[in-house]
Design a protein around this nucleic acid. Structure first.
Lengths: 154, 154
DNA sequence: CTACTTTCTCAAGCTCACTTGAGATCAAGA
DNA sequence: TCTTGATCTCAAGTGAGCTTGAGAAAGTAG
């Protein structure tokens, strides 16, 4: 059983088992600049404790449908060198919260429209307006490039 | 300007312009069994009007983060040969609505937890419980295979 | 020091959801 | 009939987000 080296730094394996991420994924995030590991003289990645928080944030944001690119932008607000403090995380959480609200709102509007469809039994293009959703640029998976313009009744 | 051939069937180009989908995407969905076009004697795809509804459904479901696989399963409940009726669509809409509710609920719980985090300024693993989200198997984008098991404080 | 585990880099591979391109064929208007 | 545009098939390419494999070096336990 490996012991944490000096200064409370964590090896990639430890970070992996604490976050549930695969070692390869963490390396990938490091390469992509989502975290930035220090290195031992021998070249091994060493993480500070708050990197676990960072990685967990990535995981959560991903579940919410954000791309790594978007997450990277959010995380840019955090300091890389010093351990992020309360204020730092608060800032991110707030921006995050706004986007969360937007996503929830979109789904709720979708649901309301769907309810209308169940009522009328139609799900047709002209009556339901399900077909002019907001948030055209939302990326959820790869998806089709061009999404739902106005369309005429079928 | 091409005129719809006999019986009110639609060419792939017409379907494309009415749904906003690319022709290549529609062909792909046909290959994947998400719609099933008839063919002219010459081999061209011809769609019935309700295929537009089907394709629009695919679009919407995708925006909600469902994979084509999941959408295919939902659509299996619809008859392929006859035009789906009110009841058919109602059934799907209901199942759909349930999943929508689940997704909204998950995001709301996430938001509430995040609010707690803003309050305490922590976003830390032990205090926030953001790290044991429901819906572990949710697929939103490709994402990491293994998501958030229990983890110990950072 | 030896044995063994962990980590390293780099290149290649994989899945999903399509798009692009080549070359051929179909169908409609002049 | 000729031409033009829409469509066809099939193979290959794309981008996101990783995973896998090979071969080497770092670190640790005995």
């Amino acid at each position: 059983m490996p012991v944490s080296p000096s200064k409370g730094l964590l090896s990639i394996g430890e970070v992996a088992s604490r976050t549930g991420l695969a070692v390869s994924a963490i390396r990938y995030y490091d390469d992509e600049g989502l975290v930035s590991a220090r290195r031992t003289p021998g070249g091994r990645r060493m993480f500070i404790r708050s990197d676990i928080r960072r990685l967990s944030f990535i995981l959560i944001a991903q579940q919410m449908g954000f791309s790594l690119e978007e997450i990277r932008n959010q995380l840019r607000q955090l300091p890389l060198e010093r351990t992020p403090n309360k204020r730092d995380w608060e800032k991110i959480s707030r921006g995050f919260r706004a986007r969360l609200d937007a996503r929830i709102g979109m789904l709720e509007r979708l649901r309301d429209r769907l309810d209308g469809c169940i009522g009328c039994g139609c799900l047709s293009l002209d009556a339901c307006k399900l077909y002019n959703p907001d948030d055209k640029a939302s990326r959820t998976g790869t998806g089709p490039r061009l999404v739902m313009e106005k369309s005429i009744d079928p």
